[in-house]
Design a protein around this nucleic acid. Structure first.
Lengths: 330, 330
DNA sequence: TGGCTTATACTCAATATGAGCATAAAGGGC
DNA sequence: GCCCTTTATGCTCATATTGAGTATAAGCCA
């Protein structure tokens, strides 16, 4: 991501003698606490119009491993881990979040575990194991399907009961407002597909999600994961849903050539939202994100469709131009 | 940020026994490398319509300190550091980026330094030391002022010379394209205020910025900082410029009551871009982000202005609603 | 052939946005 | 008071964008 030609690397902290001043008098580091760095990847691909995430341990863990001294950078470490596990190179990699809460202690109890999570995108995966559907973990996020809508109906009932059991009336009102706005209960509020993490955390607070080791009686559908990996997956999903709206990252997930409907279906499955077909085409075309390859896809089930390819190379000159996608509600 | 009532904390990694599988066989951590965590804050406030950043060491370092074992979380650590140095509580805190490149070695050469940077916003600061103007460090980012435009003219000349000296013609074209799109050279490209970091890194590659310890002959105006703190400041500025467009974070920087022109001037100084006054008012009002206090500001130099306050409390219910700001080009 | 599918082109109304005009209400100099 | 400057605030208008729908094209299959 950071390019460093010309004058070598940016000035590193270790290269200079420590700076001291009145305000910075604690620049001597606390050497007594052991630290460990874990790298965690939310590696996403799309197969058959279904977003998938790479997992290990039978779908209960995200690919992850410690930062090793041979890794040149954090991103290189993530790339090394992911490519070792998937076999092919990753396109887009971006940092998600760094966690180090007080409960993240090492097994010894003497040190701290810092987890740095990344979102990674890759194109295809033929016959590899470990891929799971996004919506196995978050069925309620897939509002396009009946299953997702059923799950939301269940959630609505459970949240209603959760709020009703609260003592304070003011708290009840406030928490119900939160439920309404996050899950778009009623028709005053529209569904916001980017709030994956906030919805998961609300369900967690309400004691409605199962995680490995502890499953409440009335748990919402959705597969559990170990540690906080499901929360990290939620973070990655939210980031990707936000990003596809203003950066052309979808194309990292597409094959070399694709039809516009294929592109639309991928966007829809990522966001869990319907898109108006004609408007989608209009916006994609007028932004000149794609160009015709000349080829034609025959197996559309109807009239054959033109094939397109991403013409990002041309656009890299005027980089960071942003993509507009007509993602709206049904 | 993450709320955790109801069922206690999310499952911590240290609480479970290690998971192993075919793919995850390196879950034994590399204990030989020493790690240190440094927390760095880009603390921003606005005074007299000028964005400022909190510094130490005579403006050459951002407030920073090691993660201590008493800190409950990373964010708590940053809050502790910042509040210790500024004296009053911070409103908004969000993580920026985690750095751990290979050149970030400890003084001993045996370990690694991980820097976790945060963006923090605070309201006012009466008579505290350490505050510096954003644009002392990045004069070219302030396109509103003549000084900024002069600085951009200098940069344009220097970049032109830098590109001209390159050997390969194809590389010359590509790099000049990059200069053009990042610095909006000519009138085919519009200035994008969010590319603070990319512009800094281009200048760095071109060997045009001075950093403490090494100042090239033909350096661009702008104060240097130690280590990579100026790059971290650029990251924070970019994040804030991006965020004010779609989240009502500006109000964290405003006093309790303000006029609409004051609000506009703060937005303008943060983004370095002019705003059409009437359209700005229209958008702010129609989003119901503010409400009249009933008070009136007399010292406007013209007709007295109504005072407003942020009515975020009402809006927290339907949270994450997004703000639209008419930021455009002159 | 008609009936199904999907692809692609085009229209239309509602809304949003950029830009400007006009008036209101203060202070200051005379 | 009158004129001038300054800022505040209300309103208009042309254009661009967006949501939604209609119409036609071109394949398959019974």
């Amino acid at each position: 991501m950071v390019m460093r030609a010309g004058r070598g690397v940016l000035p590193g902290i270790g290269k200079c003698t420590p700076q001291t001043s009145g305000l910075h008098d604690t620049s001597v580091f606390d050497m007594t606490t052991q630290m460990m760095i874990e790298l965690i990847a939310v590696l996403t691909a799309v197969r058959d119009d279904v977003p998938q995430v790479m997992t290990i341990d039978h779908g209960r863990l995200l690919p992850s491993g410690p930062l090793e001294s041979t890794h040149r950078s954090l991103q290189a470490g993530v790339r090394a881990w992911v490519e070792r596990q998937t076999g092919h190179p990753i396109g887009h990699v971006e940092q998600l979040y760094t966690f180090a809460d007080h409960d993240r202690l090492l097994a010894t109890g003497q040190g701290r575990l810092i987890a740095i999570s990344y979102l990674a995108l890759t194109r295809s995966h033929a016959g590899e194991t470990g891929w799971r559907d996004w919506y196995d973990y978050f069925p309620w996020e897939n509002c396009k399907t009946d299953e997702g809508r059923d799950c939301l109906a269940i959630i609505e009932r459970l949240l209603c009961r959760w709020v009703a059991d609260m003592g304070n009336a003011a708290v009840r009102v406030r928490q119900w407002q939160r439920c309404v706005s996050l899950f778009a209960i009623g028709d005053m509020v529209v569904w916001n597909d980017e709030l994956v993490l906030q919805r998961y955390e609300l369900l967690y607070e309400a004691g409605l999600v199962a995680e490995a080791g502890c499953a409440p009686e009335n748990a919402v559908p959705g597969q559990a994961m170990h540690h906080d990996h499901r929360r990290i997956l939620a973070t990655g999903m939210a980031r990707l849903r936000a990003k596809i709206r203003y950066r052309p990252v979808v194309f990292e997930l597409m094959p070399e050539e694709f039809t516009l409907l294929q592109l639309q279906r991928v966007m829809e499955s990522l966001s869990g939202i319907h898109i108006h077909k004609q408007n989608f085409r209009r916006l994609i075309m007028q932004q000149q994100l794609v160009e015709e390859t000349g080829g034609i896809e025959e197996n559309t089930g109807g009239r054959p469709a033109r094939l397109y390819r991403f013409c990002g190379e041309v656009r890299q000159a005027r980089q960071f131009v942003g993509t507009k996608i007509p993602l709206f509600q049904p």
